[in-house]
Design a protein around this nucleic acid. Structure first.
Lengths: 219, 219
DNA sequence: GCATAATGCGTCACTTAGTGACATGCTGTC
DNA sequence: GACAGCATGTCACTAAGTGACGCATTATGC
């Protein structure tokens, strides 16, 4: 079944990730349908066809079952940012990359993205889930730190770099929450049609949050 | 004992807050001394001299016991910001207010501040505590939103306002973490002596993170 | 000053999240 | 085809957290 995933020593790693995602999907679905408190570990286990014990082997807590699916929501932008060449501006790069998705590779499954948005939405009222969302953003911030450090030719643990990264991650979080909420209500999709429009919003937000330091091409 | 706290209808509210803080102190101490996992609800209850059941009546979870003490760490700056008059710049206001603390009112107990810094430090390695810290920052962000909304004469749920608030809260968080870590190591206290120096750092960070929108006096 | 209601707390029984220990079964290796 | 390794299942257990009830302290009405 997973003979393809055999490549060197890190064989089981991919399988692990895939399984976690699988569990996360079912958990997220149940959380959305009946609430977090009303969803038991046993239910999740049954939904995914595993024993309860195995669930706890893959996740340290019930709420953390939502993490992988939520993390996918930010991983998209992050991979795009990681490939940001030094000679192009943030606006250019985002516009090009986001547009590429339109024709080419669907970055993550649409159903997964919907699930993620629902979890982010739930995080508003369910403090347990808020943690998962904040953890995902925490991951995003870490990645952001590396990207910005590289851009500014500074060490990643530099205080300025950290502040820029946190600020950038924060505004991205707000935009994601906003977009998620908008999509879920169904109305007003017009404002986010067009890759360039979205790109411009993200770019402008990051540029502003970093005081204009992150955004321009660098030598 | 608490006859003084009688003032209007919201009597028990203050008592609740004080009790929560009391519990939080003991919990934080135990968390620091022996780790979160090794500290049981029973231990906290015994340390504060209450029954375990009562602990759960005041806190929804073990980790959340750390929240009040951590929240104190941000409440300081927040109250200062709330009193920011429209006609003064951020730098001025912070410098004046922080300097006032030096001679006048110790805003929160020093021991409490130390405890808070330890919790923030612990949050680095203990994911359970990270939640408490992020929740406190979340509160901070909410307050920040109101302050910025007022400054910019815009509604508090405006997207721009939210982004500025989150970004500002984020950099404050980084600074707090940094200062906390510095204080705990004991070394290098020189860099944070002087209220005006600290004021300048916070002011500059917030100003930058909001793209310069928040910081100047407004008409 | 005393009866009464309200509220906070303790006790006990209970549910459920999460772990440890051991058995089993599947997968790839020699 | 025996064997090592690893993921999973089963069972027993700890600890987090809740519900229900009873008791004491405190505020309120007279």
């Amino acid at each position: 079944m997973q003979t393809l995933e055999r490549s060197g020593g890190g064989m089981s790693e991919r399988r692990r990730v895939r399984l976690r995602l699988e569990i996360s999907r079912e958990a997220a679905r149940l959380f959305w349908e009946q609430g977090v408190a009303a969803t038991s570990g046993d239910q999740i286990a049954e939904a995914v066809g595993l024993s309860t014990r195995t669930i706890w082997r893959h996740f340290r807590s019930k709420e953390s079952c939502a993490e992988p699916i939520v993390l996918q929501a930010v991983v998209n932008l992050l991979t795009v940012l990681r490939s940001w060449p030094r000679q192009s501006s943030l606006e250019e790069h985002l516009a090009v990359e986001l547009d590429r998705f339109r024709h080419e590779a669907p970055p993550v499954d649409l159903a997964d993205e919907m699930l993620a948005m629902r979890m982010i939405r739930l995080a508003d009222t369910e403090p347990a889930l808020r943690t998962a969302w904040l953890m995902a953003c925490d991951q995003a911030e870490r990645a952001m730190r590396l990207i910005i450090a590289d851009r500014l030719d500074r060490p990643a643990d530099d205080l300025e770099v950290r502040m820029h990264a946190e600020a950038a991650a924060a505004v991205v979080r707000v935009l994601d929450e906003h977009i998620g909420a908008t999509v879920l209500t169904g109305a007003d999709l017009a404002e986010l049609t067009g890759a360039t429009a979205v790109a411009r919003r993200y770019a402008h937000a990051i540029r502003t949050a970093t005081g204009g330091v992150v955004g321009d091409p660098v030598a």
